[in-house]
């Protein structure tokens, strides 16, 4: 399951995304530039409405940029594809498919045989701690379990990139912490590049190699914080002085940008 180390290089070059509707134009992202190394874990942190989801959508290929481009492993992103999987905030499993049916979906699309895809899907369900839940329907699972199915469903495709849009935002604090530890465990196994959007500063610092702090809309990078905390990380790192120092630095910026977001977009 390990990434050969070669894939998952994302280059977001001078990206601009604007939405127009009835003559109104909303500029969601402006001159956004970010490079990731293969297998890196990058968190995107920024005030509500600053364009984080839009940015992920551009990497996934759901929206077309109005300026600049996204390049993944040398290919310009033009459309959605299985090499860039997305874990949504909630309710994106197929309710009519069982857990294993959801996880197998990508393999089915590639024409993998039934036996083979069941075997692979099981491996990934084990990886996210859901062995035994193959036959359940998503509606029968807790929020945290549904998100784990969502993660397995993406990873079974062995994507270059996994995009995660506030995947744990709707979970309670305890489950959220469990899910963060689980995600780190899974990521250690698969080593795919992850871009992880969150509102939660602790979550961003705990999980990632680098945290990109975004400005208020139109979103740009305000600061790129490298998190040099040793891995594997345990929940206790949150209390270390290094963590506190990083948090203080990020917090000030997020506060300023949130205040900025309330007073309207920059010209």
């Amino acid at each position: 399951m390990t990434n050969g180390g070669a894939t998952g290089r994302i280059e977001i070059n001078d990206l601009g995304i604007a939405f127009s509707r009835n003559g109104w134009t909303v500029e969601a992202v402006r001159r956004f530039t970010l490079m990731t190394t293969p297998g890196e874990f990058v968190a995107l942190l920024g005030p509500s409405g600053c364009g984080k989801t839009t940015l992920l959508n551009a990497v996934a290929g759901f929206v077309t940029p109005t300026a600049g481009q996204v390049v993944v492993d040398g290919e310009v992103v033009a459309a959605p594809g299985a090499d860039r999987g997305m874990v949504f905030q909630h309710h994106s499993l197929f309710p009519w498919k069982t857990v294993i049916g959801n996880v197998e979906f990508g393999l089915k699309m590639r024409g993998v045989s039934k036996v083979e895809r069941t075997a692979q899907a099981r491996d990934y369900l084990n990886l996210v701690g859901l062995a035994g839940f193959e036959r359940a329907y998503p509606g029968e699972l807790s929020g945290g379990m549904q998100q784990r199915v969502g993660i397995a469903r993406v990873l079974v495709n062995r994507p270059r990139v996994m995009l995660m849009d506030e995947p744990f935002g709707a979970l309670d604090a305890q489950t959220r912490l469990t899910m963060q530890e689980l995600l780190l465990g899974v990521w250690r196994e698969v080593r795919t590049t992850i871009i992880f959007v969150t509102h939660d500063i602790d979550e961003a610092l705990f999980l990632s190699d680098r945290v990109a702090v975004m400005t208020a809309r139109p979103g740009q990078i305000r600061d790129l914080v490298t998190v040099k905390l040793e891995r594997p990380r345990a929940a206790a790192v949150i209390a270390t002085p290094e963590f506190m120092a990083l948090k203080a630095r990020v917090l000030v910026q997020v506060r300023e940008e949130s205040a900025q977001a309330l007073s309207g977009p920059r010209p």
């Binding site: 997305m86 990508g106 699309m109």
Partner: peptide, 24 residues
């Protein structure tokens, strides 16, 4: 969102119709 999820898992137009639209 389900349609988006399907496309980013590799579903083409026919597969979306079959796997998402009809059961949905």
């Amino acid at each position: 969102q389900l349609v988006r999820a399907a496309t980013s898992l590799g579903a083409g137009r026919a597969a979306i119709f079959r796997e998402v639209v009809i059961p949905g």
